[in-house]
Amino acid sequence: MPIEKFVKLTSTCVPLPVENVDTDQITPARFLKATTRQGFGNKLFFDWRYAPGGKPREDFVLNNPEFSGSILVAGKNFGSGSSREHAAWALYDYGFKVVVSSFFADIFKSNALNNGLLPVQVSEDFIARIFEAIEKDSKTTLTVDLENQTISIDSLQISESFEISAYKKSCLLNGYDDIDYLVSKSAEIERWEEADTLNA
């Protein structure tokens, strides 16, 4: 399943200034019993979003009509814990295209990239500026430019560059998928296996 291309995005954002958001919060384990990838958006942050019984918790940001957009801005160490890709599926299915944090857990980062969800890691200073700007004006927009690897707070006209592996960048810009690439290398993989057996 090829991923959707990502080139450049300007959007309002949803602030979640909580540190160490683990994937158990993003998609609680009891929702992992599905056998398809679809429909995880309404499970996103389920236990933070809904009280037992299903009533929306008014104090949670996804239930606050003032905030919307396809960029989630979260505290450091986002996506820690379980390797469940359901967390990336839920964020993407909900409508997020970018997650900004000052620090991402490794497995979450890979899972996000494999689904066309761009993790943008910025400095502590920069993320503090984003949270401040959103607090002043909930309609603050960010622009994420993958080609130039920059993220900007548009109203303040300040920006910062972010890192991404050259390979993953090209996958996102072009909508390429790792599996197509790996399958295209099957002859080389076989040759490597034969040589490995001889050496072993």
Binding site: E85, H86, A88, S110, N111, N115, D178
Partner: peptide, 9 residues
């Protein structure tokens, strides 16, 4: 540990 896309890979 890996994600499901990587399991598929």
């Amino acid at each position: 540990g890996i994600g499901t896309s990587e399991v598929e890979m």
